[in-house]
């Protein structure tokens, strides 16, 4: 793993996620969940081995191709990272504009994804006028507007109250049910138990499949 102090975080891991799957990554803080996601959106390169996402391979991807890989991914972080000086509408439309989309189609697309996350009525508001849950909905709308086939979510509910976290989780589950692949890092085991799916535990530099109902805490 890159960084000032080198330390092996993941070793000998082999993992395959099929299209349309929902996968949880669980494990204590510092176990390497975020690092695994970074390998997927190719902000990190493995020291050995290969990461393949759709047609992009970590050992062959050119820096100029990375943006196009990112367009096929919807990335959601714990801290919402909305642009504070733009309205909800503009924050979501931003993802379209900066990937070269123009015209009326952008507007209808924004309206469509905002209704999908249940925020059509707040499109003129600014991030600071929204609750945390609403901000995360905007982030999800922004993540899906470029029609990614996979959502990579790194503790998307980490900053939210339990009830709000559950609403966001429902939203992600809904996206998964409509056909999207979702890989979600979380240490909220309660949520995993409520919405069980394939669960991978990252611990001691390895990845092991676990039974979600066996998770405690």
């Amino acid at each position: 793993m890159p960084g000032k102090r080198r330390r092996v975080v993941l070793e000998d891991v082999s993992l395959r996620v099929e299209r349309g799957e929902l996968v949880y990554l669980v494990g204590p803080t510092g176990s390497g969940k975020s690092s695994l996601l970074k390998l997927l959106y190719m902000e990190m390169q493995p020291d050995s081995g290969v990461v393949r996402v759709a047609d992009y391979r970590s050992d062959r991807i050119k820096p100029s191709e990375t943006p196009f890989l990112r367009r096929s991914l919807g990335i959601v972080f714990q801290d919402f990272q909305l642009l504070p000086d733009r309205s909800v509408f503009d924050n979501v439309a931003f993802a379209q504009y900066v990937t070269g989309h123009r015209g009326k189609a952008v507007k209808s697309k924004v309206m469509h994804v905002l209704s999908r996350v249940g925020l059509s009525h707040k499109l003129r508001q600014y991030p600071h006028q929204l609750s945390g849950g609403e901000q995360q909905r905007v982030v999800i709308a922004r993540a899906i507007i470029n029609d990614p086939w996979i959502i990579l979510a790194d503790e998307p509910t980490g900053n939210l109250d339990p009830t709000v976290a559950e609403e966001i989780q429902r939203l992600l589950i809904g996206l998964h049910r409509s056909g999207m692949t979702v890989v979600m890092a979380t240490h909220d085991y309660r949520l995993v138990r409520s919405f069980p799916a394939r669960t991978l535990a990252v611990m001691n530099r390895r990845i092991v499949e676990v039974d979600p109902s066996s998770l405690s805490g």
């Binding site: 367009r71 990272q81 900066v98």
Partner: peptide, 10 residues
Amino acid sequence: RTMKLVGATD
């Protein structure tokens, strides 16, 4: 960062 996140080219 947001631009990079959603796949804008450099």
